[in-house]
Simulated scan of single mutants.
Amino acid sequence: MSPIVTVQDLVTAFEPWMEPTDAELDAIERELPVILAEVDLLDAQIVTLDRTPGELDARRIRRARRRVLAARRELANRAAGATLPGGAA
């Protein structure tokens, strides 16, 4: 009979080089408004999972969707502006 051995140490091993780079942290920080808006949208949707959404719930979800779209638009505009040649951002 052969013993069953896990490979957890290989999968979850921590190495110092596994830390996020400065570029990755900057990207997360740039996307943070979108992330927070999406969390608000999820919160609004979770509230309505166990009941029929009322008018206030529907309004809260619509507002949260608009915030997500606005945050995504702002992020896209910043990314597009940063790639324009000649520094015309």
Rank of each mutant, 00 (worst) to 15 (best):
D43H: 05
D43C: 03
A64F: 07
G87Y: 02
A23N: 11
V5P: 01
R59T: 10
P33H: 08
A70Y: 01
R51V: 03
A79I: 04
M18W: 03
T83E: 12
R67G: 00
A27K: 12
T52R: 05
I61T: 07
R51P: 00
G86N: 09
R73P: 00
A80F: 00
D43F: 02
E55F: 10
V34I: 12
A89V: 07
P20Q: 11
L10D: 09
R72F: 02
M1F: 13
E38I: 03
R51F: 01
A37W: 00
V34G: 03
V39T: 14
L36C: 03
E15P: 00
R62T: 03
G87P: 07
F14E: 13
Q45S: 09
A64L: 04
P16K: 14
T48V: 08
I61P: 00
A64T: 02
A80V: 01
A88V: 05
Q45W: 03
I35G: 00
F14G: 11
N77S: 09
S2D: 09
L49I: 09
D22T: 13
E38V: 08
V34T: 14
L56C: 03
V7G: 15
E15F: 13
G81I: 04
V39W: 02
A64S: 10
V5L: 15
L36M: 14
I28A: 14
A76N: 06
A79F: 00
E55S: 12
D50G: 14
V5H: 11
A88R: 10
F14L: 11
L84P: 01
L56T: 12
P85Y: 05
I4T: 13
A13K: 08
G87N: 10
G87L: 06
S2Q: 07
T12F: 15
Q8M: 14
E15R: 15
L25S: 11
F14Q: 11
N77A: 09
A27E: 14
V39R: 15
E31V: 02
L49S: 07
T48Q: 10
A71I: 01
G54F: 10
A88H: 06
R73Y: 05
I4N: 08
D22L: 10
E74D: 15
T83Q: 14
A76D: 08
E24F: 03
E31W: 04
G81W: 04
A71M: 02
D22E: 14
G81A: 13
R63N: 07
A58L: 12
G54N: 15
L32Q: 07
T6D: 13
L25G: 06
E29P: 00
S2F: 04
V11D: 10
A89Q: 05
D43K: 07
V68K: 09
R59A: 15
A89G: 09
R72V: 04
R65I: 03
R67N: 11
L42F: 05
T48P: 00
R73K: 10
L10G: 07
A80Q: 04
Q45C: 09
T21D: 09
V34S: 15
L84E: 06
W17R: 15
L56D: 11
T6E: 14
P33Y: 00
R78L: 07
R63Q: 11
P85E: 10
L10W: 06
Q45M: 15
A23M: 11
L49T: 04
A37V: 06
T83D: 12
A76G: 05
T52A: 13
P53M: 08
V5G: 06
R66T: 04
G86T: 06
V34K: 08
